[in-house]
Design a binder for these strands. Structure first.
Lengths: 215, 215
DNA sequence: TGAAACAAACCAACTAGTCGGTCTTAAAAC
DNA sequence: GTTTTAAGACCGACTAGTTGGTTTGTTTCA
């Protein structure tokens, strides 16, 4: 706490207050009081309260987008890629839960200039997922009758909803939850033929992840 | 418009304004100006702005809960019940999209006394779904390795997320979306044996719905 | 010494809620 | 059948409190 800059302390505090009380439920005064700082310090670091909200949005969506793109590039088959994306996506909830809560509850209140920037990245993220599904169908790994968009939004929806119930101290680790989602989704999207082969893939990814953990 | 009571007009207007600008993005003044009414009229019908927010929440969750309970009672097997609940749940989005948007974006701002009442009904709703899944596993229709809670939240999550992208004028009707979700979910939860039999069930429900529509 | 980082008092705008009063309607009294 | 009374529905100007943002002053450090 001591060796953090004021800006970082403001963000951290705001994040947790926003998560609990909502953007409009927290005043600038309260944020600075909480860390024994002043409004002058706040407005030295941020143009406005809106900019702080934007910053929180941006940190999260940028991280998620990069992770998804990395997951796409690190694997080759659609099934592998889908698994990797879901895994990285779900794992974000462990680190960024307050960001996510703010992201999905308060984005209405972003000023147009800000929300446009955020939406661009959000769309890019969606496109990565849509693309994987499209390629999965083309490759014969995913069921041909699937709708790319709805399947994509279904996956995004079920994963995103995690922020409503996930608790770090809960009975399941974030990795277990990720595995659960992968299992659920693969059962729903894979063709019968692909399901036979997929067991190897799933184990491959799980083990890769396990080995990464031991670093 | 003319033969609606002031209270109804306030709710309708507030709903659409809240959906677009958020609870805190809309003042009481704006609501009443929009319908050529007055603040006096507003506070004659509602104790506070909070009470209006509560009212919107309550209408929605009460409706959804009743529909889920009815779906449960009207069918006998877990698979049928699950299909019926999902179908009724998804169809709510057609009528209550503004309610739902407000429900999931603004519930943070409900005063404790109000949010408690809402949460009770929300929990009841979850329990209906959990119960169906639990009974489905016990009956051997759903895969035994499923987690009741996570599967339940997964289903609730993917369906709820619909409010972020569903547009009545979009390419798919709400019934088609419901069928899509049912297909997706059944692929994920049914055992191999149950999948063989399920085709009949799905057709049964779809036809029953179709015949109801012709009334 | 001067610029960046922060503090503290201050301000202007906004907004939920109030309160005295008016209009309409319908029952009660005559 | 007409007048009186009363109550509910609604109006709109007003207020008190809140809150984002500013201004002016002080410290720190290169």
């Amino acid at each position: 706490m001591a060796n953090k800059t004021l800006k970082e302390r403001i963000i951290d505090t705001a994040l947790h207050l926003f998560e609990q009380y909502g953007y409009h439920g927290v005043t600038v005064d309260r944020i600075v009081t909480e860390i024994n700082a002043s409004k002058g310090g706040f407005y030295h670091n941020f143009k406005s309260k809106d900019e702080l909200l934007y910053h929180i949005h941006d940190v999260f969506i940028t991280y998620v987008l990069n992770k998804a793109q990395a997951a796409y590039e690190n694997y080759k088959t659609p099934t592998e890629r889908l698994c990797a994306i879901i895994q990285s996506f779900v794992k974000v909830f462990h680190l960024y839960k307050p960001h996510i809560t703010v992201f999905y509850q308060e984005s209405t209140y972003l000023k147009p200039e800000y929300s446009q920037k955020i939406n661009e990245k959000r769309d890019e993220f969606k496109q990565v997922i849509f693309r994987v599904i499209r390629e999965g169908i083309a490759a014969g790994e995913f069921r041909p009758e699937l709708s790319v968009e709805i399947t994509g939004m279904t996956i995004i929806g079920m994963v995103n909803w995690t922020y409503k119930w996930y608790k770090p101290e809960g009975p399941m680790t974030i990795e277990q939850i990720a595995d659960y989602f992968i299992d659920f989704i693969l059962h729903a999207v894979l063709t019968e033929e692909a399901k036979q082969k997929s067991e190897n893939i799933i184990y491959f990814i799980k083990n890769k992840q396990a080995s990464l953990r031991s670093f």
